[in-house]
Design a protein around this nucleic acid. Structure first.
Lengths: 337, 337
DNA sequence: ACTTGGCACTCTGGCTAGCCGAGTGCCAGG
DNA sequence: CCTGGCACTCGGCTAGCCAGAGTGCCAAGT
């Protein structure tokens, strides 16, 4: 259907358009890339590409620009992920290695990714549903209130206030704490539901009411609606690419945790880099953006996702390279701790 | 210097310009507000106001717009903070009351503030330096690593990884934990420095090396550089007001924690609402924005700051009203827990 | 002394017309 | 199948113009 030269033409169009942000014409193409044919030939090729929906012209007698479909073909067949040089990788590694806790790792990751790609970076905290419990702590707040603190093996710390039906004494808390730690330690959060169900038997009858309150908080807020935390950085990079449809919608979408989850979550393949182009993100308001995402974590233990969001007119090879490299190193850092 | 009518004119100019975003001329003024004088009179007044630096005209023969100095006078003398209706206050209260932990309170606050003012909202977490320790927890991670978790009375939870010089056993950790809790519980973080200095005496000699590592982490990361956490919301509201100087700078500034701290921190008066207009924020890049901020927390116990950032052309009375109301209720909610 | 109406002046913004250049599509010939 | 040529179509730029808004100043009125 499309011979080699036509594909080369498409690739050239994408590359030129990404770097210049201007519709690219037949003449410019033969000049910039060394295609050994005349502009007229290119024009014929472009006519075919347009007919097939890979490119369009904004107005009659302007150059062509790629469509979502064009970018898709480019990403799938015409480009290779740009690998990072040794120096760059070392820079990434040392930058991330300086972090002193999970919050810091995530913050550094998002900053780094934004800076490397000059796009908006999005990083999800290690998913609760994939984490295991390392420690549970109960801290008395007032007469009838406890602070439940749950620490996971990825270093994430979750806290919830528990309202108790009855007042409590130090001893019963100690006991409850011991029971919780004994039973939950090392368990994945996804397994906890069943474990907790059996717990009531293991506490004194007179403490059951309070214990039940604690258990239900664990189940409700930590397991059932396993809340995922996502942070965004580099929003100022959005101003560089002038969006056809308002910048406003994009910013709004990026403030919605739910939307972000969908953006990252949709990528099915856990290990490698996935790209969603334009309308492929069925999020209204992000129709003119692309998402490059990857999972991070060690191979045997995926933790969560991270990625960048930018205009469809994006330097995909570089972005994919950066996302892959950062995901890799972030996974490493977290595995070590 | 400025008689009553001139002040009224300035007020009218500010109000009109804020609502229309267009330079306001003498005719429009007499029409919209019921000043019982002719446009010519207004023109004379405006000439004086311009000479004194309260207003300028963007080009010859356009209307006038207020200068920073003009807004300053308006805020100080010509406007009253717009109080919220009972219904509005009730809405705020119920919205905030639904929160179930500190993170949630802060998140709701920032959302609420952004929505009420249609500006960018900025909320600082309860300041560590003003918090007291409620509980300290040590969780073993690996052979040589501990996770130090510190819970404050404002519900804030801080965590740090501690690298130990020697391996440890369960007992020594238990002991250290007990010592820490006994000595630090209830202490303000600012007092801790002196307390920690005396601690080494209270641990067994053979545990001193590890204990010292823990102490130094407490001092370094929690006390010395008492890190303040700030979150931002409603950035999409920036797109409404088209900034003279790039939106980019503003977004960049809002991503810098340090800058945000300065913005909020500068306000000296703890209790009431303070306003910084344009160049009064000596942050480069925020020269064309104003900051309306207030402290929150109960009267006897200030916790931190919150506020909104918007174009100098801002509805100050409403913004001040919203900031005051939200600060008040957030303070209340946190005092209760 | 302040206010007022009148008047001349100065801009900006929008509109139109016209030109240039870039780029295309098509066609006939190699 | 490629190529050069050619007519055609637009977008963007410039120039010129007009209308409208707004001002500053002045002389007269209260």
């Amino acid at each position: 259907m499309l011979d080699d030269r036509k594909l080369a033409v498409l690739r050239a169009i994408v590359e030129d358009y990404v770097s210049t942000n201007e519709p690219v014409g037949s003449r410019a193409l033969v000049d910039r890339h060394n295609l050994d044919v005349s502009p007229a030939t290119i024009r014929n090729d472009m006519a075919v590409l347009e007919e097939q929906g890979y490119i369009v012209q904004p107005h009659t007698s302007a150059g062509r620009i790629p469509t979502d479909k064009g970018y898709r073909l480019f990403v799938d067949k015409l480009s290779a992920i740009k690998p990072f040089s040794a120096a760059e990788r070392r820079a990434i590694e040392t930058f991330l290695a300086g972090a002193y806790d999970l919050d810091d790792v995530v913050m550094r990751t998002v900053r780094l990714l934004a800076q490397l790609t000059r796009q908006v970076a999005v990083v999800q905290y290690p998913s609760l549903s994939k984490s295991a419990v390392r420690h549970v702590e109960l801290v008395p707040l007032t007469e009838r209130r406890l602070l439940l603190v749950l620490i996971t093996d990825t270093g994430r710390v979750e806290q919830r206030v528990v309202e108790l039906p009855a007042s409590f004494d130090e001893d019963s808390i100690m006991h409850l704490r011991a029971v919780l730690n004994a039973c939950l330690d090392g368990r994945k959060l996804t397994e906890i539901a069943s474990v907790v169900a059996e717990l009531p038997e293991r506490v004194e009858p007179r403490e059951r009411a309070n214990a039940a309150a604690v258990f239900s908080v664990i189940l409700e807020t930590l397991v059932a609606r396993h809340e995922e935390k996502i942070i965004v950085g580099g929003a100022s990079n959005l101003t560089a690419a002038d969006f056809s449809q308002g910048l406003r919608e994009v910013l709004e979408a990026l403030e919605e945790q739910v939307v972000l989850m969908r953006l990252l979550g949709e990528s099915d393949d856990q290990s490698s880099v996935t790209v969603r182009i334009g309308a492929e993100n069925d999020v209204l308001g992000l129709r003119s953006t692309s998402v490059v995402a990857a999972g991070y974590g060690s191979a045997d233990r995926p933790l969560a996702k991270l990625g960048v969001v930018g205009p469809t007119r994006m330097d995909y090879p570089t972005a994919m390279g950066a996302v892959r490299a950062v995901a890799r190193y972030t996974g490493q850092i977290l595995a070590e701790s």
